[in-house]
């Protein structure tokens, strides 16, 4: 006998899903802002700073790139109370995801900074700029342009990775799905809905990254993300 899909019980709890989705947006949005900030400081620190700073940041990067995000989250959530920091599940999740993204984006941004020819930096210095002014006005935008696809890809992973927060019962989308599943017993239907919402969110984010790219790289914006191109193609055909 074929399995009969029944979405009705899940739909009845749709508000919980939307609340979860909203929390996922908040959680990953905050993690992204903090993670990118860490990445910028980390990348500039590694390329421009003294050797000890490069080493220290390098150790942080290796630590976070060689352990699972879930383990990082557990260490922060269960570990920080021992040093007197009691965090909510959501706060611990934001910190863990931000530190994880910070490690990856440090390396991505550093690759971008190193891809800029030395002659560009010398031209800036010869005009009397400080090294940090050169980074800010001469190097950052072309560097970002080079690594933009890698960086936005990492940000999509961050949005999806925030789902691990469900393991410490934060209130994001995957956790909401798990709760609904445990009351309705409609596992497949629940997580199909969850997946669709994730896809809608990642598409929206990728569209936003593309718009930001247009603003940032007025000249020669990176190509549109392909799925977005497909969507606009479909809507033009009128499906």
């Amino acid at each position: 006998m074929a399995y009969q899909m029944n979405f009705a019980p899940v739909m009845a709890l749709a508000p919980q899903l939307f609340e979860g989705a909203f929390n996922t947006l908040i959680l990953s949005g905050q993690s992204i802002v903090a993670g990118i900030a860490i990445g910028v400081v980390g990348a500039v620190g590694r390329t421009e700073g003294p050797r000890w700073l490069d080493r220290a940041i390098g150790a942080y990067v290796e630590l976070f790139r060689n352990t699972p995000l879930l383990v990082q989250l557990f260490l922060i959530f269960f570990g920080l109370p021992y040093i007197g920091l009691r965090l909510s599940a959501n706060a611990a999740a934001i910190i863990a995801v931000a530190l994880n993204l910070g490690a990856y984006s440090t390396e991505i941004l550093r690759a971008g900074l190193q891809a800029i020819p030395r002659t560009q930096i010398e031209a800036g210095l010869a005009l009397g700029m400080s090294r940090l002014q050169v980074v800010r006005y001469v190097v950052i935008v072309p560097a970002l342009r080079i690594i933009y696809p890698a960086l936005t890809g990492q940000l999509t992973l961050t949005l999806l990775g925030s789902s691990i927060a469900s393991a410490i019962s934060a209130t994001e989308l995957t956790a909401a799905g798990a709760r609904i599943e445990s009351t309705t017993f409609r596992s497949l239907e629940t997580f199909l809905c969850v997946a669709v919402i994730y896809i809608a969110m990642t598409f929206t984010f990728r569209f936003i990254y593309w718009l930001i790219g247009l603003l940032l790289f007025r000249r020669k914006a990176p190509p549109k993300p392909s799925l977005i191109a497909d969507i606009s193609e479909i809507s033009r055909v009128g499906v």
């Binding site: 002659t119 560009q120 031209a123 009397g128």
Partner: peptide, 20 residues
């Protein structure tokens, strides 16, 4: 160096304009 460089302009073989 920075004070000195304000007084000394330099033009390079490869132009080195900022492309963005």
């Amino acid at each position: 160096l920075r004070s000195l460089r304000k007084e000394v302009g330099m033009v390079f073989q490869s132009y080195n304009l900022f492309p963005h």
